[in-house]
Amino acid sequence: MSSATTFFDFEPVDKKGDPFPLSSLKGKVILAVNTASKCGFTPQFKGLESLYQSIQSKHPDSFTVLGFPCNQFGGQDPGSNDEIQSFCQVNYGVTFPVLGKTEVNGDNASPLWEWMKTEMPGIMGLKRVKWNFEKFLISADGKVVGRWASTTKPESLEETILKEIEKAKAGNKGGEQAKLS
C-alpha cells in the first residue's frame, strides 16, 4: 500500500489472521511496539500495560498500545498467535490489543512497518528495526511523531504521550469552533 499517507490507512492482521483496520483507531494516539514473549525485554509488557492503564484513566478512549508480535529477533516469539495472546494475558495482564504475528524487517516486512520506518528512520537514518520492543508513537492524525529503542522503558514515555493527546484535543477544539462559526 504505497499510497498510504497515515497509520490509519493500513490493515495488519489480528490474532485470527483477519484484517484489523487501523482506521477504527482514528483520533487516538497510538504506541506501536514489536513484541516478543521470550526476550530480555519481555517484562516491558508490564510497563506497557501500566502505561496504557494510567493514560486510559486520565484520557479514556484517547490512547492505545498496539502490540505486534515478531519472531525475527533471535526466534524469541515462536508461539502461535493464540499462545502469544495467552502468554501476554496470563503473565502480564495485558488488556491492550496484541495483533497477529508480523515481520518488521526484510522482504516479508509488513507494509505498515515499512511505512513507519520510512516516516521515522532510526539512528543514522537506518530504516530497520534493531530488536524487539522498539516503539513508534503515532499522533491522533496518523503521523509518526516518535521512535524509541528497545532499551527505553514504556513508563518513561507517559509525559510525551500525554502531550500528544493534549495537542490532539486542542486541535479538535479548534476544528469544532471553526464548524460552529
Rank of each mutant, 00 (worst) to 15 (best):
K26W: 03
L66R: 04
S150Y: 04
T5P: 00
V144R: 07
K153C: 05
S86F: 02
S50W: 00
G74W: 10
K130Q: 05
E83R: 10
G100A: 03
W148E: 14
D141C: 03
P78W: 03
M124E: 09
P97I: 04
K26Q: 15
K28C: 01
K16S: 15
T102D: 01
S139C: 12
G125R: 13
N172Y: 09
A149I: 05
T102W: 01
T152Q: 14
G142P: 07
I84M: 08
S62W: 00
L66K: 06
E166H: 11
T64H: 11
F96W: 06
F10R: 10
E158D: 01
V104H: 05
E159K: 13
A36H: 00
D141L: 01
D82L: 06
S150M: 12
A178C: 01
I30A: 03
N108S: 14
A170Y: 04
C88Y: 09
F68E: 12
K143F: 07
I55Q: 02
E83W: 01
Y52I: 04
V98Y: 12
Q44L: 10
G122S: 02
N91A: 11
D9E: 02
K179G: 03
I138F: 01
I123Q: 12
T152F: 07
T42H: 03
Q76I: 11
V65E: 07
Q177G: 05
G142Y: 11
S156Y: 00
A4F: 07
K38Q: 15
I30Q: 05
G175L: 13
I165H: 11
M120T: 06
S50M: 09
F41V: 02
G106R: 11
A149S: 13
F87G: 02
E49S: 08
Y52S: 14
G47A: 14
S2G: 09
G174R: 13
K130H: 08
S80L: 08
G75N: 14
W113H: 07
T35Q: 06
L48R: 07
G142K: 06
F8I: 06
K58T: 13
I55H: 00
G122K: 07
D14L: 07
N34T: 01
G171K: 03
G100V: 03
S24F: 04
L112V: 06
E164K: 08
K117R: 14
V145G: 09
F133A: 10
W115C: 04
V104F: 02
K179L: 12
K130R: 15
A149L: 15
M120S: 14
K28W: 03
S54T: 14
P154M: 09
M120A: 12
L66W: 04
S23G: 00
S139T: 11
F63K: 10
P12R: 10
